[in-house]
């Protein structure tokens, strides 16, 4: 009885191995048809809507061609709900224009702003396609910790790190204690950053910005893990719902 209940060792006959190899080959063949859609996402709709005129939709495009932020990692960076809303009612995030704009250092961007408006249908379709644009090989981020609500005490502690220790406030708009906008205008505004950006992406950006931006104007830092999490949590704390 006991012997009958024991699992039998699987013996692979030569015919069985052949069958398994054949199955594997069919799977590989099937994946080769399916996978390219992921490896090279369809950007035709984005191009049709004019996105490629200013934004790079793949990292191979020349760095000099960009007039707006890169979008080939939009799916990693943005929150879909925010994208759909913003594409219908775009507000200026980079108050001095994009870093390559010839008028950037004068605070007079030559590129017409704000961003073109889309209707709801188009905004949803474009968002859907943008969210497909992702980078491969991104390292893990401690999502649970990063998305934890921030206590008031920790927020003040992290504010000091953000403003005083690392001087981020010199270039990025944040808020003062009365929730009023305060800070520089050369970097993207962080007002509503928590509605706009995914916490995991902010963490990855702070850890290794070179992965996403080959030639930015922001200084590079070597934050330790505690600082990475603290600054990420402080950045994504900036939400419309936080009284701004």
């Amino acid at each position: 009885m006991i012997l009958n209940r024991m699992p039998r060792p699987m013996i692979l006959s030569s015919a069985g191995v052949g069958w398994q190899i054949a199955r594997l080959m069919v799977t590989v063949l099937w994946l080769s048809f399916v996978m390219p859609a992921h490896a090279t996402p369809d950007v035709s709709l984005l191009k049709k809507n004019g996105c490629a005129e200013c934004h790079r939709l793949n990292p191979e495009a020349p760095l000099d061609s960009r007039k707006g932020p890169d979008l080939f990692f939009a799916g990693d960076k943005f929150q879909a709900d925010w994208l759909t809303r913003w594409l219908q009612e775009p507000v200026v995030i980079r108050l001095s224009g994009f870093i390559t704009d010839t008028g950037f250092l004068k605070g007079e961007p030559t590129l017409a702003t704000p961003h073109p408006k889309l209707d709801l249908g188009k905004a949803e379709a474009v968002t859907g396609h943008l969210m497909q644009l992702r980078m491969e090989g991104l390292e893990d981020a401690p999502s649970a910790e990063l998305n934890e609500p921030l206590s008031k005490g920790k927020r003040f502690k992290y504010k000091i790190l953000f403003e005083r220790e690392y001087g981020c406030i010199a270039c990025h708009q944040s808020v003062n204690l009365a929730y009023q906008p305060r800070g520089g205008v050369s970097g993207p505004s962080l007002l509503s950053a928590g509605d706009r950006l995914k916490a995991d992406w902010v963490y990855r950006w702070l850890k290794n910005p070179k992965k996403f931006e080959k030639r930015g104007r922001m200084p590079l830092f070597e934050f330790n893990e505690e600082e990475l999490q603290a600054l990420t949590r402080y950045v994504v704390w900036h939400k419309q719902s936080e009284g701004q």
């Binding site: 001095s96 950037f104 250092l105 010199a170 270039c171 520089g184 205008v185 050369s186």
Partner: peptide, 16 residues
């Protein structure tokens, strides 16, 4: 960005 194009301390971030 902060110190200005000619270094006069009047970059775009200076007022902020």
């Amino acid at each position: 960005q902060c110190h200005g194009i000619k270094g006069k301390g009047n970059g775009i971030n200076a007022p902020h």
